Amino acid sequence: MIELKSPAEIERMRTTGQFIAGILSELGEIAEVGVNLLDLEHHVRNRIRERGAQSCYWDYAPSFGEGPFRNVICLSVNDAVLHGLPHDYLLADGDVLTMDLAVEIDGWVADSARTVIVGTPADEDLRLVRATEEALEAGIEAARPGNRMGDISAAIEAVATGYGYPINTEFGGHGLGRTMHEDPHVSNKGLAGRGLKLRAGMTLALEPWFARTTDRIVFDPDGWTIRSADGSRTAHSEHTIAITETGPLILTQRLPRLANSTQA
Results as ranks from 00 to 15, higher is better:
A142L: 07
A142Y: 12
A143S: 13
A143I: 07
A143E: 05
A143Y: 05
A143H: 10
A143V: 11
A143D: 08
R144C: 13
R144Y: 05
R144V: 09
G146S: 03
G146Q: 05
G146L: 02
G146D: 08
R148S: 14
M149A: 13
M149W: 03
M149I: 09
G150T: 05
G150M: 03
G150S: 02
D151C: 09
D151M: 02
D151E: 01
D151G: 03
I152M: 01
I152W: 01
S153G: 04
A154M: 01
A154E: 00
A154G: 10
A154D: 00
A155G: 05
I156A: 01
I156S: 00
I156N: 01
E157V: 06
A158Q: 06
V159H: 05
V159W: 07
A160H: 04
A160L: 08
A160P: 11
G162D: 02
G162P: 04
G162C: 01
Y163G: 12
Y163D: 08
Y165D: 02
Y165Q: 13
Y165P: 08
P166Q: 01
P166E: 10
P166L: 08
P166V: 10
P166A: 06
P166R: 01
I167K: 00
N168T: 04
N168M: 02
T169K: 08
T169F: 03
T169C: 00
T169A: 00
E170D: 04
E170K: 12
E170V: 11
F171V: 10
F171Q: 10
F171D: 04
F171N: 07
F171S: 15
F171P: 08
G172W: 03
G172I: 03
G172A: 09
G173A: 01
G173S: 09
G173K: 04
G173D: 04
H174K: 11
G175N: 04
G175K: 09
L176C: 13
G177F: 13
G177C: 13
G177S: 13
G177W: 13
R178F: 12
R178M: 11
R178P: 13
R178H: 14
R178Q: 12
T179W: 05
T179Q: 15
M180H: 13
M180S: 08
H181L: 15
H181E: 13
E182W: 04
E182C: 08
E182I: 11
D183M: 11
D183P: 14
D183R: 12
P184Q: 04
P184K: 05
P184E: 06
P184I: 06
H185V: 15
H185N: 12
H185I: 09
H185Q: 05
V186C: 06
V186K: 12
